[in-house]
């Protein structure tokens, strides 16, 4: 087993060498955008269209 693969710290280091900060920021922003649209967007049109999903999934709705 390689040492870098053994610990949480090692995993973070591996990711740091494999990815640029720009890629990490892009991924995080993308995930945040999806999460926001699905969970928190209260604009009436969006809210009403996703109404059944939010209730069914137990997400805070209105």
């Amino acid at each position: 087993m390689t040492a870098t693969n053994e610990t949480v710290h090692g995993r973070i280091e591996t990711a740091r060498t494999e990815l640029t900060p720009m890629q990490v920021a892009t991924g995080l922003l993308f995930a945040a955008a999806i999460a926001f649209a699905l969970l928190f967007l209260q604009e009436p049109l969006a809210h009403d269209a996703m109404h059944n999903f939010r209730h069914g999934a137990g997400i805070v709705c209105h």
Binding site: D48, A49, N52, F53
Partner: peptide, 24 residues
């Protein structure tokens, strides 16, 4: 919000809810 009429049709709600479930 709920007491008033739907802003979108029930069909739209149903379809978008399914899509949201997949995305979730």
């Amino acid at each position: 919000q709920e007491g008033t009429e739907h802003v979108v049709s029930e069909t739209t709600t149903a379809l978008v809810s399914v899509g949201s479930g997949v995305l979730w």
